[in-house]
Lab assay of single mutants.
Amino acid sequence: MGTYKLILNGKTLKGETTTEAVDAATAEKVFKQYANDNGVDGEWTYDDATKTFTVTE
């Protein structure tokens, strides 16, 4: 398990959240659902060194 971070750079929603997941693929699924639930759809990037996903609208 590891802690993964999501940085939201949406047009109307900005912020950060974290999740505990077994791997990056699992964290990505959780974060994409979170972003979708909050109406954020954009370009995704992932930094393996910091376990950080970023979505920018």
Rank of each mutant, 00 (worst) to 15 (best):
T18P: 02
F31T: 00
G42S: 02
E28L: 15
A49I: 11
Y46V: 01
E16P: 04
A27L: 00
F53T: 00
E43S: 11
V30H: 10
D41S: 13
D48M: 09
E20R: 08
M1R: 07
T18Q: 12
T12N: 14
T17L: 15
L13M: 14
K51E: 03
K29F: 09
L13H: 13
G39A: 07
G42R: 01
A35Q: 02
D37Y: 06
T56G: 04
T3H: 09
T26V: 07
D23W: 03
F53Y: 05
F53L: 01
T19K: 04
K11H: 11
F31Q: 00
T50W: 04
A27C: 02
E57K: 04
N9D: 10
T52Q: 04
T56H: 07
D41W: 14
G39P: 02
A49P: 08
K11N: 13
K32M: 11
K14G: 05
F53N: 00
D41L: 14
L8A: 04
G39F: 06
F31R: 00
A21M: 03
K51N: 08
V22S: 12
V22P: 15
V30R: 10
D48E: 14
E20F: 13
E16R: 07
Y46P: 00
D47Q: 05
D41F: 13
F31C: 02
T54V: 08
A27T: 00
D48W: 09
G15I: 15
L13F: 15
K51A: 06
E20G: 05
K14F: 09
V55C: 08
E16C: 13
T45A: 11
K5W: 11
T56I: 07
M1K: 12
D23A: 03
Y34N: 02
T52M: 04
K11S: 12
L6N: 00
E28M: 15
A24V: 12
A25N: 10
N36F: 14
T52S: 04
K11A: 11
T26Y: 08
Q33I: 08
D23P: 01
Y46Q: 01
K51Y: 07
G42H: 02
E16G: 07
K11T: 11
N38E: 08
G10E: 03
G10L: 15
N36G: 07
D48G: 10
V30F: 15
K32C: 05
A24H: 09
E57M: 07
G39Y: 06
Y4F: 08
T17N: 05
E57G: 05
E57H: 06
G42Q: 02
K32V: 07
K5E: 03
K29A: 12
N36E: 14
T19L: 09
T3W: 12
D47Y: 05
Q33V: 08
Y34T: 03
A27R: 00
T12R: 08
G15A: 11
A49H: 11
V40N: 03
T50A: 08
E16F: 13
N38K: 14
T17Y: 15
G2H: 15
T45S: 13
I7Y: 06
A24T: 07
D47E: 07
T50D: 05
E28K: 11
Y34L: 06
F31N: 00
G2N: 15
T26I: 06
D37M: 13
V30I: 15
D41Q: 13
T18R: 08
V30E: 08
G42T: 02
D41P: 04
E16Q: 11
K14I: 09
N9S: 08
T26A: 15
T19W: 08
T19Y: 12
K11G: 07
K5A: 05
G39K: 07
A21N: 03
L6F: 05
T3G: 05
F31Y: 02
T26K: 06
Y46W: 04
T54N: 05
L6P: 01
T52V: 07
D37S: 10
V40P: 02
D37Q: 12
K11M: 13
Y4S: 01
T26R: 06
E16K: 07
A21L: 02
A49E: 13
K29R: 13
E28C: 13
V22R: 10
K29Q: 10
T18K: 07
E57P: 07
A24I: 08
E28D: 04
T45C: 08
T17H: 14
N38I: 14
D48R: 07
E57Q: 12
K5H: 13
T50E: 06
E28V: 05
W44G: 00
D41E: 14
A27G: 02
N38V: 15
V30P: 01
V30K: 08
V40F: 11
G2W: 15
Q33D: 07
T12K: 13
V22D: 07
V40H: 04
Y46A: 01
W44P: 00
T54Q: 07
E43H: 12
T18F: 13
E28S: 07
T18Y: 15
D48P: 14
E16N: 06
Y34C: 04
V22A: 14
G2V: 15
